Computed example of a mutant assay.
Amino acid sequence: MAAQASGDPTPGPTVITDPDGIGGLSSETISYGRHRHQQMDVWWTPDGMTRPGVFLIHGGWWSSGDKRQMTAITREYADRGYTVFNLNYRLSTEAAWPAQRTDALAAIAMAKKHAARWALDVTNFVVVGFSAGGHIAASVGTYGNGMAGLKGVVGLSPIISPLRAYKDGEETLDPYKRKLRSAAVRLAGGCAPKGKCSRVWASMEVAWHASAKDAPMLTVHSQDEFVPPVQSQLLKQMLGKAGVAVTTWSVPGIGHSSALYRTPGVAERVQEWITSHLG
């Protein structure tokens, strides 16, 4: 069943992020569904002003990772004046695709429904994902024909095409590419992209769902990482045909996901892109 963002948000474990109030920030952990991983940390400035939103989605091969690894980045965006939602989601070891996209959509719906609680401007937010989280973020961006209020999607080393990752990992000595191939199979429920599983693999392909009202995207890759820039080329082509702007950017090296984000100049450029789309 799809996670539903209904009723009041359910408090999760308390997160103490600014105990002395130095930054003027408030935070709490909220459950947006019944599963233990359907939770998000929310950081906001309780000054009576509504603020643009940033939704962060962690990576981890779809099968691991936790929002805790995004805490520092969450704080950075909160300090910049955004209301920030740092998401957990059901892992592929717990539920097959599209559960991960469903969870991200449910978290966004919960945030919109209770926007006044967190001073969120529901007409002005972005989704930022890292690696497997970049795949989820981009899939949110191409779900349906646009989402009200979504002004942009950013992917750091995003797996735009699990099919491409599956093929790239077939005959290679690169252990990361081989692991990504296996991770994509696990995400699809344990089966290869043929026969009865063809539909779920098609659902996982971000570029195949491009629509004219989708949000613009920024994707960033290292030139020699195991999720190469070619992953974003089809997305740029397909969204471009629909009239949606996609900016693809690559930097030298092999840095992946959070390591790529910490490469000098990358975080600053991502922040500039977000600012230009949120104001």
Rank of each mutant, 00 (worst) to 15 (best):
V154L: 11
M70G: 05
F85A: 11
A72K: 12
E76T: 10
S131D: 03
L105R: 02
Y143K: 00
G60L: 06
A95P: 08
P158T: 06
T45C: 08
A111Y: 01
L163W: 11
S92C: 08
R75M: 10
T45K: 15
A72L: 13
I73E: 15
V126P: 05
E171Q: 10
R164K: 09
R164T: 10
M110T: 14
H114P: 01
L173F: 11
Y82H: 09
R90K: 02
S182C: 10
E171L: 09
A99P: 00
F55T: 01
I136H: 13
W61R: 07
L150P: 11
W62Q: 09
T83C: 12
K177A: 03
P158K: 05
A111W: 00
A137Q: 06
F85R: 12
F125S: 08
S63D: 10
S92I: 06
Y89L: 13
R101I: 09
G129L: 13
R68Q: 13
V126Q: 02
L163Y: 12
R51Q: 01
Y82A: 05
K177D: 02
A106F: 01
G149T: 06
T93N: 15
M49C: 08
A109L: 09
T45F: 04
P162H: 13
W61S: 07
R51G: 00
R164P: 04
A96E: 07
K167R: 14
A132M: 13
Y89K: 14
R164E: 09
I73V: 15
E94I: 01
T74Q: 14
A116D: 15
D121R: 03
Y166G: 10
G81M: 01
S63G: 06
T83D: 14
E170Q: 14
F85T: 08
H135I: 06
K151Q: 08
G146V: 04
L91A: 02
R117L: 03
W62V: 06
T50E: 00
L150Q: 08
I136S: 10
H135S: 08
A96H: 05
A165C: 11
A96Q: 04
L173W: 13
V140E: 11
E94F: 05
R90A: 04
A115W: 00
L120G: 09
R181M: 11
A137H: 07
G144K: 02
L173V: 10
K113D: 14
H58V: 06
V54P: 03
M110Q: 14
I160R: 06
